[in-house]
Design a protein around this nucleic acid. Structure first.
Lengths: 120, 120
DNA sequence: CCTATACTTCGCCAACCATCGAAGTCATTA
DNA sequence: TAATGACTTCGATGGTTGGCGAAGTATAGG
């Protein structure tokens, strides 16, 4: 029960749902997610913490950069089921499509430049 | 997107999840749900309103009694998918099993007696 | 009608949460 | 080793939410 509630609470926020859908295209660095959502880095970091705690994302540190991705086949089954439902329910959502387009642009930009969100 | 968020917010509460799982055994009157959860009728009524607004339950009025049930095949697809996920994730949950046992006792009690929760 | 009653709505309160900026952590790099 | 930079944690704040009791609504029965 507790794990299910962690998952549903994690999904009960628009921006966290946008993050999960964006990660379907592959792993992303925190600063790329910050660029997509246009939120403060500290806010996005906390969102990622909530998602990680619910088992909905995995994380990997590479030097100064923090990469996030959806859980693989060995991830928690409840989380994978929830992600499958989410993907089906938002398959043709226009807001998610807009995020996807914005993300395509973001991924053409070097990380060093994106991370200017910390300096500006 | 908005409908998905309504669904996830509705699922992001322990007591509402308990209600949905209880309804898998068949339609229930509000006073039966009140007895199972041991909450104030006004609180349960608000929970049912949230669930109904998300498309996760249907309602039927019969005289003074209000009956709730899970949506049928013609219900919203996103809601049905979410309910399927929830049922799978909580299939063997001990708390849900305890609710189920308590509910079996509740259903042996006439509604008039259960509804004593309104009279103090 | 008038009363009793099953439920809903309203007003309130404590707890929680999303957000931000500032300060802290830790790894690269000059 | 000092400085830069990516990220996290902390503290504060405004908005949301779950809970209750009281008041309102609507229906059955006298």
């Amino acid at each position: 029960m507790q794990q299910v509630i962690h998952i549903t609470k994690a999904l009960a926020d628009r921006n966290r749902v946008r993050i999960l859908m964006a990660l379907r295209q592959g792993e992303l660095c925190l600063c790329q997610i910050v660029a997509m959502l246009a939120l403060a880095p500290s806010t996005v970091s906390k969102h990622m913490s909530v998602l990680h705690h619910a088992g909905l994302v995995e994380s990997r540190k590479d030097g100064r950069w923090m990469y996030f991705s959806l859980p693989g086949p060995e991830g928690p089954e409840a989380a994978r089921g929830a992600l499958d439902w989410l993907a089906a329910a938002l398959a043709e959502d226009p807001e998610i499509a807009a995020d996807s387009a914005a993300l395509a642009r973001v991924c053409c930009t070097p990380l060093e430049e994106l991370a200017g969100c910390y300096r500006g």
